[in-house]
Design a protein around this nucleic acid. Sequence first.
DNA 1: TAGTGGTCTAGACCACTAG
DNA 2: TAGTGGTCTAGACCACTAG
Lengths: 241, 241
Amino acid sequence: MGSPIYLKIVEDFKERINSGEIKPGDMIKSENALCEEYSVSRMTVRKSLNVLAGEGYIYSVPGKGNFINEPNQDKYILYFNEMTSIESSVEDTQLLDVNIIKPTLEIIFNMQIPENKRVVLIRRVFLSDDNPVAYDIKYIPYYRGIPIVEKEIHYATFPEIVAKKKSLFAINKELKIKVQKPSEELQEILGIEISDPVMVIEQKMLDEGNRPIGWGVTYFRGDFFHLQAVSSFADKSNSIY
Amino acid sequence: MGSPIYLKIVEDFKERINSGEIKPGDMIKSENALCEEYSVSRMTVRKSLNVLAGEGYIYSVPGKGNFINEPNQDKYILYFNEMTSIESSVEDTQLLDVNIIKPTLEIIFNMQIPENKRVVLIRRVFLSDDNPVAYDIKYIPYYRGIPIVEKEIHYATFPEIVAKKKSLFAINKELKIKVQKPSEELQEILGIEISDPVMVIEQKMLDEGNRPIGWGVTYFRGDFFHLQAVSSFADKSNSIY
DNA sequence: TAGTGGTCTAGACCACTAG
DNA sequence: TAGTGGTCTAGACCACTAG
């Protein structure tokens, strides 16, 4: 009823695409032809096509026309937060230690820093019902004069630790998700045995220029952790947020 | 140079947001005020704001104004495909068996089907260098008269198996990612020991009405598998695809 | 009531494509 | 050269917000 014309055109096209009437690779009618078909102005047609393009249904080739897109089956939306993604949420955080260390080769590689640059190492354990459920390690470049405030480190997630004054908008993140058999150290920290698998999530923070500004690894007890993801289509909103 | 006015306005705003000049929650100038500031028509200003909204920087409240968004730190883009996500890609697929079975309680729950409805069970092993790297189970509702073609099942991924005539656009998917200690059966199939962890990925396929049309579980050898995800910001494109 | 964003029109000029 | 999508203008009317 009250829905605007452009959304009706959008729905019309979605139906035609989902029913298979028009298929990936097909060129759709020209914008001017669509103006006639729907008896609307070109801006209205373009608004509809814009929405369809934003949701991945179509793409345009200037000078040629608009085409139906190949659906990307392999793309999912994943929500992850090392503090809140644990099944029974983290009630407490135990700060093991904060140290300024010389980087290992692994750290040099992951943070792309010179050998002689020092890094801040933060080690924490996440607790749920007083039981350790995750072991968390973060590396941040060390800058003289920037104090490491314990309270902040205690409860902050990685983006918050790293961002500080920078806008969180400017930070890119990368996750690597693996499984691992726990080391002896990890068995002790998490109170598990060698056959109890852990989920390992590496987080890398990058600035606007894709320079690493933080690297972290969180080891989750397998029985306390799972991730969920949905196809990007389930997320109908146009917004990335 | 050649970049259109509306993109310059977009870049201008991104800079102002990333620098912290304007912060989440702030209301920005009215569209008419922006028309004056940039000496452009309202449609051009709206185009800019549209792009910023699409990338999650701002949102609008009709009757009030446009506001800077809170960055969503926890949202990532994950690419997953049970056949291609394996580190050394799957060279061969071994079809163990295809059966029509009575659903177990777990299947009834996950596929939301009546007890007396039969389901097709497909069991496969993915091989890499002749070694089993993943064990794959799929359940699909059984419809009389729809033949199960072996060749298709051999190499198809889940969305392809399930979709058949339906458009892939219309299908929603859900993933659940866990770690697990391998059962005896799994140890035998994958040639691993109890202390070798496996990554378990459950896939659920849903139709437009969110009714389950397929359910599957893939068990990956932990040492042959990892997932990667990137923050949605790294993906600057407006398109979901 | 004045101001806001949402929708829509009817035009214009442009670079590009393809015969 | 005719047709395509991309950008942009200067208007209009609307529902909604908030004083």
